[in-house]
């Protein structure tokens, strides 16, 4: 089905090395973002909202901030950044002239996108701890789970990258898919405030909903059986988009 060997790590390493070369820039967002959101929404707007379902508002949005950051970092890595490597830098062409297969190039890119999500979650965690909005030690689980969530968003992103005619067209999924998810996935207000049909839609079609649900269980250290359903949804979708992305990319790149 897919032709992947250990050589996939050489593709991953390429991106890791490039990331480290510009680490100063790369490390800014995960530190700055949660601070800004927590101050503006959590402690600013949040003063009008005493609690959501008995949870202080900053504590309520903390897991959403991690989820959003993971989504953005993996999704944008495997859309705009991957597209630049594929189309403008011809990096994929250079790699497939070696024993590394196309499947491995695409898989390596997605694994890297997931890693980037995980790095961001790991860097955000100390900031959130400093604000006292996440429970320990359960919140350490944010890091490994960010890898899985990141892989899901990387896979979806790579599918868009495989079919997009140009880099500008990537703005469509960014605004029509990612931005609505940012707002309507139980991030800044609970899902059950939405009309029932939209709730169902969010559960069925917005992956971030499931990611936020799990991250919230993690940071509150309050797990429920529905989290298993969330996890199952994510696992199935991750595998599906991972394979689909490779298939679509083969079609685009093998000429």
């Amino acid at each position: 089905m897919v032709d992947i060997t250990g050589r996939v790590q050489s593709v991953w390493r390429r991106n890791w090395d490039a990331f480290l070369r510009t680490y100063r820039v790369n490390f800014i967002p995960p530190f700055v973002e949660p601070v800004l959101y927590l101050l503006a929404l959590g402690f600013g707007l949040g003063t009008y909202i005493e609690s959501v379902d008995g949870i202080p508002y900053p504590v309520f949005i903390a897991p959403a901030l991690v989820s959003i950051s993971v989504m953005y970092s993996s999704f944008f890595e495997c859309t705009y950044s991957s597209f630049v490597r594929m189309y403008y830098q011809k990096t994929f062409d250079a790699i497939i002239a070696t024993p590394v297969s196309i499947d491995e190039v695409i898989a390596g890119e997605m694994l890297w996108g997931a890693t980037r999500g995980m790095i961001y979650a790991a860097l955000m965690l100390p900031v959130l701890l400093l604000f006292g909005v996440v429970a320990m030690p359960s919140s350490l689980l944010l890091i490994p789970f960010a890898y899985l969530a990141g892989l899901l968003f990387a896979g979806i992103a790579m599918c868009f990258t495989a079919i997009t005619p140009s880099i500008d067209a990537l703005n469509y999924p960014s605004f029509l898919f990612i931005t609505p998810m940012f707002l309507f996935s139980g991030t800044f207000f609970p899902l059950d405030l939405l009309p029932q049909p939209i709730q169902y839609f969010a559960l069925a079609a917005l992956p971030l909903t499931h990611v936020v649900a799990i991250n919230r269980a993690i940071t509150l250290s309050a797990f429920s059986p529905t989290n298993l359903l969330n996890l199952a949804w994510i696992a199935v979708a991750t595998i599906f988009f991972f394979v689909l992305a490779i298939r679509l990319m083969r079609r685009r790149l093998i000429v």
Binding site: D17, A18, R21, Q89, K90, T91, D93, A94
Partner: peptide, 11 residues
């Protein structure tokens, strides 16, 4: 050696 320059500009 491809016709098009595809060296890695990140390195």
């Amino acid at each position: 050696v491809p016709q098009e320059t595809n060296l890695d500009p990140d390195f």
